[in-house]
Amino acid sequence: MIRFDGISKRFPDGTLAVDDFTITIPSRTTTVFVGSSGSGKTTLLRMVNRMVDPTSGSIHIDDDDISTLEPVALRRRIGYVMQNSGLLPHRTVVDNVATVPLLTGVSKREARAAALDLMDTVGLDRALADRYPSQLSGGQQQRVGVARGLAIDPNILLMDEPFGAVDPLVRSELQQELVRIQKDLAKTIVFVTHDIDEAFLLGDQVVILKTGGRIAQVGTPAEILANPADEFVDTFIGAERGRRALSIQTVNGKEVVVDGTGRLAGILRSPTPESGRSA
């Protein structure tokens, strides 16, 4: 469990990136921070591994106040995956994955074997093990990034727009892969994105943020869709117009579902067709 308590962050240049942010992130589930650019998502995420220290407030991981923990040690038990994969360009794929285990004194052979296993986990061909990052596609690089994040078998995995820079097809592939991995591993994942679809797909808990890290709404995807807290959320999730504003029209006596732009989305089938029809 990660608990943010009245967290604020003002950068030295005066920017108030996060203003009084409080939330609890339950263990072994995925929490997604979603919001537009500059809403403070990255700042919040980087506070968890003390890459950024809050100006005020406290963060607890389980019962430890992280400000009392040594940053380097803390970071070594938290996985971190970032947008541009952040791989070390001068190390091969397998060495990149094994970086942190090697830092913590795991033997070279063990670390390498574990890294190869992780490549399987994230769906990377072992044949790529000795390539350099620059010789991989963007999607492959992100998979390496995820594998590296998992290398120390952390309880917590922080992911900052990990799929932001790949094309839509690869992105949805990677998303499915993450869903599968999470089903097996059940980590506490904090995931940052500005893509609401991605948030609803991956998140057990979704946190919609406005500028300054102010929470617009927290809930499961279903709760948010069913009850947008305000107009901002409404607009953000596109409930008013667009694909999510589904409505029923009757065509030739059958009910079809169309979206906000009038495009056909599907037909409506009630769980008990007979009663549905008669009602």
Binding site: R46, N49, R76, Y80, M82, L88, L103
Partner: peptide
């Protein structure tokens, strides 16, 4: 970004 990633990993 490379340096940042290295730091976030716990170097």
């Amino acid at each position: 970004r490379t340096v940042d990633a290295a730091r976030s990993m716990g170097m």
